[in-house]
């Protein structure tokens, strides 16, 4: 076949096919999504300290273990009061000349989701102690400790933020003081709160049904996977919620 024996036409064809598909599944949807979204009216911008805190969050690779997305599935209910929507991420822009946008949605939940951590854990003390060594507040945690965000001093100065650390985690007779960086990171974590939707907006439901309970299965009454009807329902409701949002 002529096409296959001519390297120019062969490679051009493959290249074009790939580029066209790319345009349709990546470029156009991405463009569309970023053009047709604005932040929610009540969404506050991050404070300057929190912006720096976010940079620290990025540079330490926290996103490897912490997601920032509440999916519209039942099990995600505990991570927020409503599913995340595209508008929640609309205010993320390119970080700077060197670095890309960071929506920090994440792909792995080795640690808890942080979409609404500011509501769940409003206390600065807790965050600082937790960052110094997570095992102080959660003995089973496998999160890394961040002692380099703190300094060990003989005596705290006047404006120092002293962190409550049990004696076995520090040398005797010293105090642990949070650095500016630690405070910025905590400022960012405290500002991670789900924004209320404007009045009158229907809150998108958590769509996906719970798995059948063990008792039902034992009785043989539960349908295992969600049936076709449920799928249809999910898709219809998703479409409705989308059109309302747009």
């Amino acid at each position: 076949m002529e096409l296959f024996d001519n390297h120019k036409s062969l490679y051009r064809t493959a290249f074009l096919l790939f580029v066209i598909l790319t345009v349709f599944v990546a470029i156009i949807p991405a463009m569309n999504n970023q053009r047709n979204n604005t932040p929610l009216p009540d969404a506050p911008a991050l404070s300057p300290a929190a912006v720096k805190g976010k940079a620290l969050f990025v540079s330490n690779g926290c996103v490897a273990c912490h997601t920032q997305q509440v999916r519209n599935v039942d099990m995600d209910k505990k991570w927020g009061s409503r599913p995340s929507i595209a508008a929640d991420y609309a205010d993320n822009h390119r970080t700077d000349f060197w670095r890309n946008t960071a929506t920090l949605m994440g792909t792995e939940r080795t640690g808890p989701d942080l979409t609404d951590i500011g509501t769940r854990q409003p206390g600065e003390d807790w965050h600082l102690t937790h960052l110094f060594n997570p095992r102080i507040v959660a003995p089973a945690s496998v999160m890394p400790a961040y002692p380099w965000l703190f300094t060990e001093k003989k005596e705290a100065a006047k404006n120092d933020v002293v962190v409550k650390i049990p004696d076995e985690y520090k040398e005797e007779g010293t105090v642990i003081v949070a650095t500016l960086q630690a405070l910025q990171l905590v400022a960012y974590l405290k500002e991670l709160k789900q924004v209320k939707l404007p009045d009158g907006t229907e809150i998108p439901a958590f769509l996906y049904a719970k798995q059948p309970s063990a008792a039902n299965v034992a009785n043989g009454t539960a349908a295992g996977a969600p049936d076709g009807r449920l799928y249809t329902l999910i898709i219809v409701r998703a479409v409705i919620s989308r059109t309302e949002k747009d």
Binding site: F15, F18, V19, T22, A26, I27, P29, A30, M31, N33, Q34, N37, A86, Y89, A90, D91, N92, H93, R94, F97, N100, T101, A102, T103, M105
Partner: peptide
């Protein structure tokens, strides 16, 4: 192609980045 799409700096606000 994918490197260019992913690294060109003039776009990818919000969910555009995720897609």
């Amino acid at each position: 192609v994918i490197s260019v799409v992913a690294y060109v700096p003039w776009w990818q606000d919000g969910l555009g980045e995720t897609i």
